[in-house]
């Protein structure tokens, strides 16, 4: 298990005052964050830009030392035992960095494999296996500079797995990828966690991705933790509103009145069209069943029904709004 206890990161930044003068400023990027990642679990780390996600990942992956607090990986201290910890973790970032473009896919993996202490047949087998699972076997001898963005990202995943890490940090792994490639990568991430039992920390701006993949989510704001739970619980605790839009046959005023009376706790709005009425309902619960019952009772024919459940995205937006207010 990875366990971060009260970790913080303080940067000293020079701010230009004039052409010749600059002033040192202390920036607290992460502040007293507690976080755990278990084997076989996908944990999301969310926050707006500048929330401290990347700094947190860099501390967990040993690239940066925390200014305060401790990080342990299976009981090993990430600062004192950095070499052993490095062998157990890896990081995959979105974009096209972290690879040597002049080398082929296989050469990249061979280089990184050796840096992780692999060699000989074991390394060649691992390269073959990884190129196969990321679907780059046919492009293994092609220089990376000729790869498409999706191919580079898949090779990044192979690079991130070269040392068979127990814990993997994914920093915006689907950034800028086409929908089919992103979907394929999400499938791969799920397999890594659920079948290969790897502990994964994921940051992403695509909240549907987080909702689909993550078992638990940490939401941070200006470096501090503001919420930690399952995506479902976070959504349920932050966003209460369900929105239902129903298009029915034209409703008379008495029927509209009875509808309003029958849907207790809901807010209703009606829009009259030439041959239909559109009803908009907002409720702190899912009112679909109740609405259908009422429509049946009033002999109203439903032409279209659309339910919008609260999503994690709504929760994040609500939290951001709350924080900026």
């Amino acid at each position: 298990m990875i366990e971060a206890k009260g970790i913080g990161k303080v940067y000293s930044v020079k701010k230009k005052k004039s052409f010749f003068r600059s002033e040192k400023q202390i920036v607290r990027a992460v502040n007293g964050l507690n976080l755990t990642i278990n084997e076989g679990e996908i944990v999301g780390l969310l926050g707006l830009n500048g929330a401290g996600k990347t700094t947190t990942i860099k501390m967990l992956s040993t690239l940066l030392n925390p200014s305060e607090g401790t990080i342990t990986v299976d009981g090993l201290d990430a600062v004192q035992d950095a070499i052993q910890v490095k062998a157990m973790v890896n990081m995959i970032a979105g974009g096209e960095r972290m690879l040597y473009w002049r080398l082929t896919g296989a050469e990249n993996l061979r280089y990184f494999g050796k840096l992780y202490g692999l060699s000989g047949n074991a390394l060649e087998k691992r390269i073959k296996y990884l190129l196969d699972i990321v679907g780059l076997t046919n492009a293994s001898d092609t220089p990376v500079e000729l790869y498409s963005k999706g191919m580079k990202q898949r090779l990044q995943i192979a690079r991130g797995l070269i040392n068979d890490p127990k814990y993997l940090f994914l920093d915006e792994p689907t950034l800028g990828l086409d929908a089919p490639v992103a979907k394929q990568l999400r499938g791969m991430v799920k397999t890594l966690a659920k079948s290969d039992r790897k502990g994964i920390l994921l940051t992403s701006h695509y909240l549907e991705e987080v909702e689909e993949l993550c078992d638990r989510v940490y939401i941070i704001e200006k470096g501090s933790l503001i919420l930690h739970d399952t995506p479902e619980n976070i959504t349920a605790s932050v966003v209460k509103d369900y929105h239902v839009t129903i298009e029915t046959s034209v409703l008379s005023a008495p029927v509209q009145y009875r509808m309003k009376q029958g849907l207790i706790g809901c807010t209703l709005g009606f829009t009259e069209n030439a041959d239909s009425t559109v009803m908009q309902i907002k409720a702190p619960f899912d009112p679909t069943a109740q609405i259908i019952d009422l429509c049946v009772k009033e002999s109203v024919s439903i032409q279209k029904l659309e339910l919008k459940r609260p999503r994690l995205e709504d929760a994040i937006l609500a939290l951001a709004k709350e924080k900026s207010a």
Partner: peptide
């Protein structure tokens, strides 16, 4: 400059060897 520093520093390899 080439964006590969992080992937190098992530590894437990000897910098002297590098």
């Amino acid at each position: 400059r080439e964006g590969t520093l992080e992937s190098l520093l992530l590894t437990p390899s000897s910098r002297k060897g590098y």
